[in-house]
């Protein structure tokens, strides 16, 4: 955390290497979080770049007031996604075609396994649509953004206790909706 604070201070003073370090440290998480919510590679890429451009423009106004830099960055990402859906209100479906490319190697490197996995991911995306917006946000931040409970709480502006309750409820609901899918995925390690 101290290192992050130092980097933010340096970036605010215009140090490009400090901003680059912050970019490198956050890029994958922000991309995953956005991808989880928009499900289209091109949109995810555009939005990710917009988030960092926005962060660059606004870093001068960032203050440590009980909100970490990560939480601040995820709020920007959240706002960009909200704007994106406002602009593209027709996009309320999640097409399978042209879906996110999975660049993992290993068990998903052959096309059949990748297609199967994409289908499972799709099921989960659809199931997530049945959660409340707040539950969906917590799941996105915790699993795609890999934020801690504390960071998630800062990002969504709730208490840590509320986040724990929401993630419990969300997982319980998801389990009910997609029981057969998770059974298929059982046994696969993360």
């Amino acid at each position: 955390m101290q290192q992050e604070q130092d980097l933010v201070q340096r970036a605010r003073r215009g140090d490009p290497e400090a901003f680059e370090c912050l970019y490198e440290a956050s890029f994958d998480k922000i991309y995953r979080y956005i991808s989880f919510k928009v499900r289209q590679q091109q949109d995810a890429e555009d939005l990710t770049q917009q988030v960092f451009m926005k962060a660059m423009e606004s870093i001068g106004s960032f203050r440590w007031r009980g909100v970490s830099f990560s939480a601040w960055l995820f709020r920007i990402a959240h706002n960009q996604i909200v704007d994106f859906y406002r602009r593209n209100s027709r996009r309320n479906t999640v097409p399978l075609e042209d879906n996110l490319a999975i660049h993992d190697s290993g068990p998903y490197s052959d096309p059949e396994a990748m297609a199967e996995r994409n289908w499972q991911i799709e099921e989960l995306s659809q199931a997530c649509l049945q959660l409340t917006p707040a539950q969906r946000e917590v799941i996105s931040l915790r699993f795609a953004g890999e934020l801690s409970v504390a960071e998630t709480a800062q990002t969504v502006g709730k208490s840590q206790g509320a986040v724990k309750v929401m993630q419990h409820e969300a997982l319980r609901k998801l389990r009910q909706i997609m029981l057969p899918v998770t059974e298929e995925m059982d046994g696969q390690r993360v």
Binding site: R32, Q49, Q120, T182
Partner: peptide
């Protein structure tokens, strides 16, 4: 619940194209 958590984690485990990451990094820098 943890099995479902694993499924959620796998759904979120996408990686950006390396060339996008490089080009985007260049533009931001």
């Amino acid at each position: 619940l943890l099995r479902t958590a694993i499924a959620a984690r796998q759904a979120g485990a996408v990686k950006a194209r390396p060339e996008f990451k490089a080009v985007s990094g260049y533009h931001v820098r």
